[in-house]
């Protein structure tokens, strides 16, 4: 379980880490903790998968690449087999099961705009299931933070 200190750490660590030699010491000081305690708690929360990833968030579009949300309607009996094929693609950055006829929703992240279509086509070929692509047309807000 998370205590108040863990929650304070999680809230702070969803904001940017400073680019200095000892960034965790800087954040620990802000939170009134020692650097060693902050690192121990971060390690524990990462091992417990409360934190799924810690590090830089890259914007594929800023390096000339692209992101695209995609969806497939996977028959229930084939779900695990299709999942294995889809997740084997390194371009699949996130994948969620959802309650809908379109029950597999994943994000493709590629180094070139053409990479999206190539990856979607490859997945269609391998699975025999249509891949619907929903690229973003407008981004209204990404309030990525969650209050822990």
């Amino acid at each position: 379980m998370l205590d108040q200190t863990d929650r304070a750490i999680l809230n702070r660590m969803q904001d940017d880490l400073p680019l200095v030699s000892h960034p965790y010491a800087t954040v620990a000081k802000e939170l009134g903790l020692s650097e060693a305690e902050l690192l121990a708690r971060l390690t524990r929360m990462t091992e417990a998968r409360v934190i799924t990833r810690f590090g830089p968030f890259f914007d594929a579009a800023a390096i000339g690449g692209a992101f695209c949300l995609c969806a497939m309607a996977v028959p229930a009996g084939e779900f695990e087999a299709v999942l294995t094929k889809v997740n084997a693609h390194p371009e699949v950055a996130h994948n969620y099961e959802r309650t809908h006829r379109l029950n597999m929703w994943f994000v493709l992240a590629t180094e070139t705009p053409e990479g999206i279509e190539a990856a979607a086509d490859a997945i269609e070929r391998e699975t025999g299931i249509e891949v619907l692509c929903f690229p973003k047309l407008q981004e209204f807000y990404i309030g990525f933070r969650v209050a822990a």
Partner: peptide, 23 residues
């Protein structure tokens, strides 16, 4: 280099991605 990548938006931020379910 990291500072330049941030300024160009290649790095959006250096941060934790929490697991919503576990929270």
């Amino acid at each position: 280099r990291l500072s330049a990548l941030k300024a160009r938006g290649v790095i959006r931020r250096i941060a934790a991605a929490p697991n919503h379910y576990k929270l």
